[in-house]
Design a protein around this nucleic acid. Structure first.
Lengths: 223, 223, 223, 223
DNA sequence: TATGAATGAGAGTTCATTCAT
DNA sequence: CATGAATGAACTCTCATTCAT
């Protein structure tokens, strides 16, 4: 409104602009985070199919159209949600494999934390697969995609690194990261779709058994 | 009109009705199959989310409403499609593990055929998980659900049976069926979502490696 | 921005919000009324069966989906229309039986106004009977139903009250309200369906005759 | 098909054609009646809104399209159904007012039978009003309309005639037929729409009271 | 910034009716 | 005569998105 004279307070004008900009960015980021929290809550309750912008906005205290000030599209919300989900995943895995433990314990802890994260938050898994499967181009740009992939690898690297420390040679360790990820995903899908019931198996125990075998192979130093 | 002597041409009057009825039933079945083929094609191109009745009907040469002469609802089409998919799966697995081969070969053949079936027809996998996850009650009745589960287990039993023959004890063999299924599903999802690229791994080779380890464990007679 | 001193301009800040809110509510109400008017027009031309949301919306200058910003469902429009219709009925009956007149005149005036209202607005009658007959639960909640019933009774009570003043004993007066309502409805239906033509009678005169007899009975103090 | 030589059997050819034609007409009529019975049953169970051709046909042992061999349209079925309904009404009224009784008894009996017919068969009333209100042109031709009106008047004439015998002068008696009809219709509608509940009155008793007053007026020889 | 009004496309489903067989 | 397949229009309702204010 009132245009401040830049010459009146010469040494503080630029910083003031910067400060204002920074504050605005911070506020904006906070609101985005708030909307994402609402979106996550909606997904948790209704799933991906049942979620819609109106409901997400309502939870965040907005009206549907207002969301577009913060996100370009519904798909963009999904993308942001996934990014944030992967941060939580990394935090969980890091917490499950403290540096203070032995390599064996870190391998087990990281792997189990990875599995538990998605077992406890099944909607995060839905989200990931929905997005990678069907998201529209503007929702998941190559850049974002690469960033998300990187964060997922980071999480798995905690497990892979421990296996390497235990003695697993290089090509095998990398393969094992992928294989373990696949195994988890499969088990989680079986659980989420209640498909596991038909086998009368406990997916958590199957995961533990898989982890144990991988650790054994690492210790044996073989592929 | 001309009253046919029932004894003169014994197998004519009633059979003619039967024949007509049979032909009608055959034609009807063919049309259902044709519609299902159209539905499968639509799924292949658009995925489950993008598919809609109008498009399915259009592909089959119908108008949307006409589909309801053959299927009670959209979900019923999905159910039929899944049932048929599982039949093809069983056929593929059976073909991949002929009785003439050794148990080891049958284990490998069945497992690999299972994986290849879904690797070659990724939409069949989508279908299965969509349906078991989100299908409406009237589309997937408990009866149908049980039947579908049974067919899936049939397919996996070829693998599990061979492992048992190789010496894998009981609780382990059953667990392995579930674990192998989960591993396949995970790998396939990684592949379908192009997520596997980030690991620069070949999912087929990862599957083979998994199978090989399972066969070794079976031959070692351990869990 | 400019922090207004609450004491300086006492009736400005909060009231401005209130005013805006009030104006918005008024505009909203006006639009609802406008849609209801369109709906009433459609009913008048096409009847209840022929009416559909698209047409109602089109008349109101909207697209079908837009109506849902103002009404939850088609049935809700009907409900609102009926409520509003009953208000007009009460106003008409009240105008037809001013307090300044004698009881006899008020009985005649109220009864005749009741009849005339529906004779002049035949679709209001259709509406009432359609709704009470076939409306879906969410369209006519028990609460709304009770409220509507009450308003109808209010209108009839003007007639019944005057009869009581004229000397009609209690159980008879209440019965007469129902009987008169029935008589009106019957005559109106005969007129609306052009069925009255076959009797070559004037329904208005038949109504007057009925009213006259009721008034006489009231004055005779008998049932 | 084979054209019979009219000269070969001179005295029987024409009659034979007539007989065949008559038999065909009879069969046709029987089938129409059968379909109407099915339609009536469907209406009784589902009401006019819930009824549809497929269901009517199904009940009659036909397929929807087959109905068009016997009726030009759905509306034509309704028209025929109403015609038949009026026949049953006349039969009921005649039975309720035997010639052997006194004029007073016949007046009461005819009126009450009229009311009871529709009170017992509410769908017949729906039918009548639906048709006269909204039926498409081809469903209710002027001829049919006139015929239906005539049969309705026949039924009411039993009541009006008895009033005349009791001493009601001409213009009044005719008016009373219309007025009584209107009163019945109103009461029946109140009952069918459960609207009568709000008055806590018994519609049958209200009808009796109305009849009694009409009879009294007839005996008093006044309008 | 946030609103709320409005849109337009599209969804699944129902139904009376037609017509070749 | 009866069928069954097929049609096309119509229905209510949902939703992401846009835009003036």
């Amino acid at each position: 409104m009132t245009q401040a004279d830049p010459q009146a307070i010469p040494s503080s004008a630029a910083p003031r602009d910067k400060q204002r900009h920074a504050r605005r960015a911070a506020v904006n980021e906070a609101k985005r985070t708030h909307i994402l929290a609402a979106a996550r809550a909606v997904f948790q309750e209704r799933g991906l199919e049942g979620a819609n912008l109106r409901e997400i906005a309502r939870r965040a205290g907005y009206v549907a159209g207002s969301i577009y000030s913060y996100f370009d599209s519904k798909e963009a919300i999904y993308g942001a949600l996934l990014a944030e989900s992967l941060e939580r995943l990394n935090a969980a895995v890091a917490a499950g494999a403290p540096e203070s433990r032995s390599a064996r314990e870190r391998a087990r802890g990281a792997a189990r934390a990875f599995y538990d994260f998605y077992a406890t938050n099944p909607r995060d898994l839905d989200l990931g697969f929905y997005l990678f499967g069907g998201m529209k181009p503007q929702g998941l740009t190559p850049d974002l995609n690469a960033a998300l992939n990187a964060r997922l690898r980071d999480a798995l690297a905690r497990f892979g690194g421990a296996l390497r420390e235990l003695g697993m040679p290089e090509p095998a360790a990398r393969s094992e990261e992928a294989a373990f990820f696949a195994h988890c995903v499969g088990l989680l899908l079986l659980e989420n779709t209640r498909r596991i019931r038909m086998f009368q198996e406990d997916p958590g125990k199957l995961c533990d058994a898989y982890i144990e075998r991988a650790v054994e192979r690492a210790e044996a130093g073989a592929a």
